[in-house]
């Protein structure tokens, strides 16, 4: 029976379900307890589950991510919230040099079943230090799984799959998605490693994830009004990539545009573009195009920030230029 809720409520419901169904699960991070989370994703959980399982931590990402790794090694199933991915840089050594490679360094003796959630992305007028999209960096790391739930349904059910993983899982929640409303089937158990076709189409494949999905769908709507049917693919899992799904799509449409809020250089979009070139070159009818953020620190001023981030209009324009001369 589907119910309607916001993305924020879906995250909260997922956390509550995890805490309720497995006593090894605990939640820790800055302000997750008394304050209810910087994005209110854990409001009410302290009251329900108590301070042992919903723990406010000191303002030191390296410390509490490290503590999470320790807890995971000790048999717990910790969920660590890093307020935004911008602050994850302070815990980079813990994530990159410890969590991600513990299994490898210990010759398979230890595993780190740790889930780290963080907000990501720009568009909230909070300036360059708080607006980055670093999920592409983490998606480069062998040893981790990286998820980007873009729909309310995925916010509700992907955590369930993440907690079943034996190795670290990083979940990136785009800050603009929290207030978005959507339908949720509470019982759906979605495979976290599979990409999804959010809108079928025959003319061009638009490949995206996370906060860029709504913009891409909006662009596809506009394009449809002009007779261009775009297929929209939500990657959902950024590592490992569901490569076959988008390659299949490109083999049908012969054109691809990758939409990624990170910067162009060395981005996930660049990786996807390279995969298409390597494995679907002879199916391409036009060069792969990308719509990413301008290579600048994200501006504070609203009009400049909007201009720097990928927008529906730019996606639409890119597709139209790619289609110029067709029908």
């Amino acid at each position: 029976m589907p119910t309607t809720m916001t993305y924020r409520e879906a995250v909260r419901a997922a956390l509550a379900e995890a805490l309720r169904s497995d006593e090894r699960v605990l939640l820790m991070g800055e302000d997750v307890g008394r304050y209810g989370g910087a994005f209110a994703c854990s409001r009410g959980l302290l009251e329900e589950f108590g301070p042992e399982r919903v723990r406010d931590t000191p303002l030191s990402e390296a410390t509490f991510v490290g503590a999470g790794i320790g807890a995971a090694l000790g048999g717990m199933r910790p969920i660590v919230e890093i307020m935004t991915c911008n602050f994850a840089l302070l815990a980079l050594d813990q994530i990159v040099n410890h969590a991600a490679i513990m299994r490898h360094m210990s010759g398979g003796q230890f595993s780190v079943p740790l889930v780290i959630r963080m907000a990501s992305g720009g568009g909230r007028r909070v300036a360059a230090q708080h607006s980055n999209s670093f999920e592409g960096w983490f998606a480069r790391l062998p040893g981790v799984t990286v998820l980007a739930p873009a729909t309310v349904q995925d916010a509700r059910t992907m955590l369930r799959g993440a907690l079943r993983e034996p190795d670290p899982v990083l979940i990136f929640e785009h800050i603009l998605l929290y207030p978005v409303q959507g339908e949720v089937d509470e019982q759906a158990d979605t495979d976290i490693r599979r990409a999804a076709v959010r809108r079928p189409g025959r003319d061009v494949s638009l490949i995206t994830y996370g906060g860029s999905l709504p913009k891409t769908l909006a662009a596809a709507e506009q394009l449809a009004a002009e007779g261009i049917e775009a297929e929209v693919i939500d990657l959902r899992c950024l590592r490992p990539l569901d490569t076959e799904l988008f390659l299949d799509s490109v083999r049908r449409t012969h054109r691809a545009v990758v939409v990624d809020e990170a910067w162009y250089t060395g981005s996930l979009a660049a990786e996807i573009s390279a995969l298409i070139m390597e494995r679907a070159f002879y199916d391409l009818d036009a060069p792969v195009a990308r719509v990413c953020s301008a290579e600048v620190p994200l501006p504070y001023a609203g009009h400049l920030e909007d201009a720097a981030l990928p927008q529906a209009a730019a996606i639409e324009r890119t597709v139209k230029e790619m289609m110029a001369g067709h029908g």
Binding site: H254, D285, A286, A324, G325, H326
Partner: peptide
């Protein structure tokens, strides 16, 4: 005759 960008010949 190509009708794609820059006169490129396309499937169409």
């Amino acid at each position: 005759q190509g009708t794609g960008r820059g006169g490129a010949i396309t499937r169409e």
